[in-house]
Simulated scan of single mutants.
Amino acid sequence: MAKEPKTSMLETIQFTRRTALLGLAGAGLGVSTGRLFVTPARAAVGGSLQIMAWEGYDMTNELREWRSTNGVTAETSSIASQDDVQAKFIAGNPPPIDLAEYNQAYSKLYIKDMKIVSPIDMSKIPNYNADNLFDVFFDKPTWFSDGKHWGSPYIWGFNTLLYNSDMIKKPASYKDLLDPSLKGKIAIMDDATGNWPLIARLVGLGDKYPLLTREELGKAFENYVLYRNQARLISINQGDVANFVASKEVAAVLVADPSIITQVRAQGVPLEMAIPEEGPVLWVDAWFIPISADNIDTAHAFINQSLDPQIQAKVATAVVQAPVSKKAVALLDADARKRIDYSKINEIFASGLPGIPPVDDDGEHATYADWVQAWQEFKAGL
């Protein structure tokens, strides 16, 4: 993997990643996707659309008019963990899910290993074009391979650090959180895909992630225990963390959602964002059509609408993240436009996007299962 983005390129970026927990160590193994019966796919836009999405990312408000015009009824299941998606396909007879989100780290697992992704008919996605999308999202291997489009990126952001500026000065490095005065005053979000690359970076192995040896994995987690020893809590619940910050029991949070800032500031606490020298962890979410989809035409129409510049701007504003549409930038409000220097987007993504550790054991590198076990043991030690 190439070197991580330099902090100087990202000083104006102010995003974090919502919570994600990897809980299925063998998700790509022994998967059966046969269905007991097949429902004929619809041949027109309309009807019920079954969606799996992160809370707040299903575009309920942004696509309200589109749904009404086209007679679409969306039934959404919220994702608390990326593993919630593949869990639907571990056993046979997956439910008829028409659309779901996936983090870029799961591309190979979903497309190559589990084979739960159907190709997208790009003739039905006219908004997916080089004039609309930033180049870093257009026809890139993460979503386009073997001559087929498997996913449609639609939102991006990153994980970083939040801190109470009344309690501590702006951290220049994550290592600043190891100050003895902060013992019991930091929180770590239970976000594996956000924490794992960071864990590797903190011991100088960021360039190797996700291909660490088992010895390196042990070294990385041994070092991260120092941060756990400083922590008041490790939590999957953003609301709980917001309460701890608002009550000033916690001074800094690793891997938090930007909504926490709004909640905490509303209570008079100055929660700010820092981008430490180790850099943020980038992520991109994409829509995909699962193999069990019934309402395929409507799923395509939904994806197309998700890339409309006006919808892109509305979604990015609502979730305090960033659009994949370059045309959407001009439609953002002034504060949203200032969060990122979009002229440097190619530099921001120059290091590539982090993946997940290999599912299969190659005899050299720590596997996905090894990382999950290490993460669970790490959390249990608090």
Results as ranks from 00 to 15, higher is better:
157 G>V: 05
15 F>E: 13
222 E>R: 10
107 S>W: 04
19 T>W: 07
315 V>T: 05
355 G>H: 06
137 F>S: 11
162 L>H: 02
243 N>Q: 11
361 D>I: 00
105 A>L: 02
222 E>W: 05
44 A>V: 07
327 K>D: 10
284 V>T: 10
241 V>E: 03
3 K>R: 06
28 G>P: 04
47 G>S: 04
364 E>I: 08
341 D>L: 03
232 R>A: 04
36 L>E: 07
316 A>N: 10
71 G>P: 15
75 E>S: 14
185 K>R: 06
308 D>L: 15
308 D>I: 12
83 D>P: 09
286 A>R: 06
204 G>C: 11
105 A>Q: 03
201 R>A: 09
328 A>R: 01
364 E>G: 09
179 D>P: 03
244 F>T: 00
49 L>Q: 09
256 A>W: 04
64 R>A: 15
353 L>P: 02
192 A>W: 00
101 E>A: 03
7 T>V: 12
143 W>A: 00
264 V>A: 01
57 Y>E: 04
143 W>V: 13
56 G>Y: 06
77 S>E: 10
228 R>P: 04
271 L>H: 10
138 F>Y: 15
264 V>M: 06
293 A>F: 15
133 L>P: 05
223 N>W: 02
248 K>D: 12
308 D>R: 09
28 G>S: 15
142 T>H: 01
55 E>C: 12
372 V>C: 09
228 R>L: 02
77 S>A: 14
299 A>D: 03
74 A>L: 03
96 P>Y: 07
237 N>W: 08
